[in-house]
Each structure stands twice: as structure tokens, then as C-alpha cells.
Design a protein around this nucleic acid. Structure first.
Lengths: 208, 208
DNA sequence: CCTCTAACGGTACTGTGGTTCCGTTAGAGT
DNA sequence: ACTCTAACGGAACCACAGTACCGTTAGAGG
């Protein structure tokens, strides 16, 4: 097991960082233009003006590259809203997600990652962690709503946030129906109504 | 343009049908065991006791094979429920979907198809048609609920059905959270509550 | 400024996914 | 039953994604 260390981890500055940035940018380009299946490491290397060997050494597989792309994106997180009402906050969240999934570049990336996660455990973990932190960032909206008495006290905050995203991702991946602002608003509205009615109460408290 | 005809379409009976069945079964096996990325046509041919050439001639790519698998599955459609209440019907639907996505074989197939559809237009079309018919089968539940006065008259029936599935698929593909009966019940419950509150009214009538 | 080596990158190589060729098998029509 | 050919299947073949090798470049530390 002479697995040594990952290339790029010992000297992460200077040239190494430039190469990484250049490769990730090129990979994003290919993804947006041609999609996941067309992503070929040699091609990425060419576009990034980087040696093919380097790309294979540092990423090795398409899946790893896509995962790294996700981690890179995870760093720029957008702050949650605080509009004073649950509907306002969730609408802001829904629209943020909607805009993300409508942007060609980001949509392609998310599709690629989700497709890759389907068949690779490590990618799946990265994906779950990504959404875990995103959901944690927005959950306080629901907690505030609980304090304001808008929804039952035992509401599962994270589940409400997921309920907002679910229909949007469903459209992106499964249905390919229009994904516009109205859809986002509707998703937020439905989540609020359901939450008020107690549909997202903690399971443990829900033993009939 | 000597595209002739698709092999298997002129003489669809007898041996041809046997080969198709055998290959699809083998493909399903691989999918369930090892996932989409491991699906290699030569391997499928070996397992199906069929010539590698045959598989390449008739399907050509992994994507085509997976699409064919979906079409094959689309033929056995399950009838919708009719329990007398919207909640009852949607719960039945949610549990049906939940059971499907929990079954290892079917879950793997759906993941594979959705992943493939991500990067291939033809597969995407097949996928959309599949869900289109499924949704059409269940939409009457909502229409009956409209007649009973359970939900507003201008409720978008198909959107309600989609709302039931969305959180389940979201879990399957994005979140990997538990996907049990309680989740299904909750999805149905949330959809009903939101529908009653008018969250799924037709857009055209919703111009503020 | 000099050294040391992590990381890069060109070239040559290899294994395998996919194709081509052509002979064989077995349904469908008469 | 006999014929005709769609469809199958083995084997040789090929292109190219992925690997191995090794010399070169450029950050980091003294």
C-alpha cells in the first residue's frame, strides 16, 4: 500500500493551482457544451493546455474530475434569505435553486454529478455532503418559522427544505417539464402549506 | 443512407424474440448487481449466451440497451387505485412508487435510465414518454377528487401526481435518505394538503 | 540565490471496447 | 417439405482511452 499522497496535495500553490483551475474550467466547458458522456480526459487536457498525463495522474477518471468540480463549486455558497415569513424565505430558496438548474453550465454540471453518483460511491458521498451543507444553511428559515408559530413545533426543518427542491430536481432529471419562476413559486407555496398542516412533523413524534 | 431497417424488426418472432428476452434479462442482472457504469455489452452477451456481434448489431450502445429495457418495462403497467378519497389514492400511488424504487433491480434500472437520459436525447424522450403515460394513468384520481369537491376545480391533475413522486425520486437520486413507507405516506399527505389549498391550480388561471 | 523535489508533460506502449467479415442457423412463406 | 434470407455468432481486426517511463520545469525552504 504505497499509496503515497494525492498529487497536488503537497504543493498546492502556484503552478499546481493554475493547472487545477484550468482543467476544471475546461471540464465545465465540455460538460455545458456536450454533456457528461462526451467528457474525455484527453480532450479536457487539450482544452486546458495541460499534459494528458497530468490529468490522468491527478484525476484518473471522469467521475473523479466531476466530483472535484462539485467540491470546487461547494465553496461558493450563497447565504440564506431572511424575509420574515416562511413563504418568503422558501420562495427565495426555490428561485435560487430554479436559477441554478436553469443556467446551462450549472444544470449540465448537476446532471453530470447526479448521473455519476448513480454508479460511484465516492461521488455519491460528495453529492450527499454537498446537499447536506446546503440544507443545513437553509434549515434555520424553518426554525424561525417554528418560533414565530407559523408551523408546528415538531416540524422537521430539513425535510421542509428538501420538499422545496424535490419538484425542481424532479423536473430537471425525470420530467423535463418547464422549470420557470412560476414552478419555483409553486414549489415553495406547496411546501409551506404542507408544513403548516403538519405534513413534515418529525417521524418519531408521529407514531399513530 | 442505406439505413435499411433495424435488425429484429422484420422477423420479430422465434429466435429473435428469445435473444431479445435473454439479453434484456442479462442486462437487468448486471444493472442490479453492478450498476450502470459496469454495463459492458460484451459482458451482457456472455451472460445471455448470445454472440457479442448480435448485441452490438441490435443495440450498439449501452444507452440503447437501457432504453430498450425501459420500453420493455413500460408494457406492464399497473392500474391506478380507486379508494374513494384523494389521500387514499395518492397514498397507494406513493407506496407503489416507493416499492418500485426500493426494489434493488428496479431501482438500479431507473437510476441507470435517468443517468443515461442525462446525456442522450433519445433516451430522454423514452423516459419522458414513460412518465407521461404513467402520470396519465393516475391523473383521474385527482379528477375524481375535483368532482367530489375535495380540491379546487382548476387543479392541475398531472401536477399533483408529479408532486407525489418528486420527493421519492429526489431521495433516490440526490439525497439517498431513507425511502420507506412512512416517506411515501408523507409525500401523499403533503400533496393532498397542498392541492386542497390550491397550490396546484392551472397556471393560466393563476395570472395575478 | 541555490538546492531539492513535487508536479508537469512529451512519447511510446498496451489492453480492450467496438467493428468488420463471412460462414451458419432457423423462422416465415409457399 | 423446401426455399429464401433475416438474424445469429465466431474470429480476426482496429482505434483509442488509459498507462508507463523518464526527462523537464518551477515552487518552497534554507
Amino acid at each position: 500500500m504505497s499509496h503515497a499522497v494525492e498529487p497536488g496535495s503537497v504543493r498546492p500553490g502556484g503552478r499546481t493551482a493554475r493547472v487545477r483551475a484550468s482543467v476544471l474550467r475546461a471540464a465545465g466547458d465540455v460538460l455545458a457544451e456536450a454533456g457528461f458522456t462526451q467528457l474525455d480526459l484527453a480532450d479536457v487536457a487539450r482544452r486546458a493546455d495541460v499534459g494528458k498525463t497530468t490529468v490522468y495522474r491527478r484525476w484518473g477518471t471522469v467521475t473523479n474530475l466531476v466530483t472535484d468540480l462539485l467540491l470546487d463549486m461547494a465553496e461558493q455558497s450563497l447565504p440564506r434569505a431572511d424575509t420574515g415569513t416562511l413563504l418568503g424565505d422558501l420562495t427565495a430558496n426555490a428561485q435560487l435553486v430554479q436559477r441554478t438548474l436553469t443556467d446551462p453550465r450549472q444544470a449540465a454540471l448537476f446532471k453530470a454529478i447526479i448521473a455519476a453518483a448513480t454508479g460511484d460511491t465516492r461521488t455519491a458521498q460528495a453529492l450527499h455532503r454537498f446537499y447536506d451543507t446546503r440544507i443545513s444553511e437553509w434549515a434555520p428559515c424553518v426554525e424561525q418559522a417554528i418560533e414565530r408559530g407559523e408551523v408546528p413545533a415538531d416540524t422537521d426543518a430539513r425535510e421542509v427544505i428538501r420538499a422545496v427542491s424535490a419538484p425542481l430536481y424532479y423536473r430537471l432529471l425525470v420530467t423535463a417539464e418547464d422549470l420557470d419562476e412560476a414552478t419555483a413559486d409553486r414549489a415553495a407555496q406547496a411546501a409551506v402549506v404542507a408544513a403548516r398542516a403538519g405534513a413534515y412533523r418529525q417521524r418519531t413524534a408521529n407514531a399513530s
